[in-house]
């Protein structure tokens, strides 16, 4: 690791460890290793850990640990840190996805921008196993990448007020699937029947930071049989 970690104050009860300068799939094994060490080192004083692309936010209980004590604990966990090789591969999830302009209205636009046929866009998007970099925006919303650079596209100028749950989307070099209906400005390519966030499920979120994800193209029939919602999208208003 050529980059030197930097600790920054994030308030009375949190530090952020800046581990890397740029997004890289290999970051996650270092961040996972640091998270595991923090869990052990803080014990009951740990409140939350929020890993993201290049950082780990560590939230602790300021009644039992002062900010300076927490800083010392974190510095200790960084000594001789080794990447977590087992976590590196993570779990591989396959998300059945119906790619279709009726539920993925930006499919033609992305194809046009890439100078590719729609079928080639689907192939390019579905052949990679993506890495989950971060969860955020909404419960279970996983930021994944990196997509084939030919598919790179800017966000919509006007975000949609309602993006249906399951929508498979693209922005920049990242891809995601919306766990619940929310507003959103990403380009929609299709819809998955997978349930991404389920409060009845052990662990709640299907996807975790570090997991691998593949979108598997399925027909409308299979998508519907798996419980997918085929309702077409409202136009952007």
């Amino acid at each position: 690791m050529s980059w030197k970690p930097v600790l920054e104050s994030a308030g009375l009860d949190a530090w952020i460890v800046r581990m890397f300068a740029s997004i890289d799939e290999r970051n996650v094994s270092w961040l996972s290793a640091l998270a595991r060490r923090c869990e052990e080192a803080f014990g009951d004083a740990l409140v939350d850990l929020v890993p993201s692309y290049t950082t780990l936010l560590i939230v602790f209980d300021p009644l039992s640990v002062s900010p300076s004590q927490a800083r010392a604990i974190i510095c200790q966990t960084l000594v001789d840190l080794e990447p977590e090789e087992t976590a590196h591969e993570g779990e591989v999830h396959e998300l059945p996805t119906w790619y279709d302009a009726r539920v993925g209205p930006e499919l033609p636009r992305v194809a046009e921008g890439a100078g590719m046929a729609v079928s080639d866009v689907i192939e390019a998007h579905s052949e990679r196993a993506y890495r989950v970099f971060a969860l955020g925006f909404a419960p279970g919303f996983a930021f994944m990448g990196l997509v084939d650079p030919r598919l790179e596209c800017a966000r919509l100028n006007t975000p949609r007020k309602r993006v249906p749950a399951g929508s498979v989307a693209l922005a920049g070099l990242q891809t995601a699937a919306y766990p619940t209906e929310t507003p959103g400005g990403w380009n929609l390519l299709g819809r998955t029947s997978a349930r991404l966030f389920d409060r009845e499920r052990d662990g709640f979120s299907l996807l975790r930071v570090g997991d691998r994800v593949r979108f598997v193209p399925v027909s409308r029939e299979v998508f519907e049989r798996e419980g997918g919602n085929t309702a077409p999208l409202e136009p952007i208003t």
Binding site: A10, D13, A14, I23, Y53, L56, L57, V59, F143
Partner: peptide, 10 residues
């Protein structure tokens, strides 16, 4: 920035 965890009161 590259998105990162944000704490209360940020």
């Amino acid at each position: 920035l590259i998105s990162e965890g944000i704490s209360l009161g940020s």
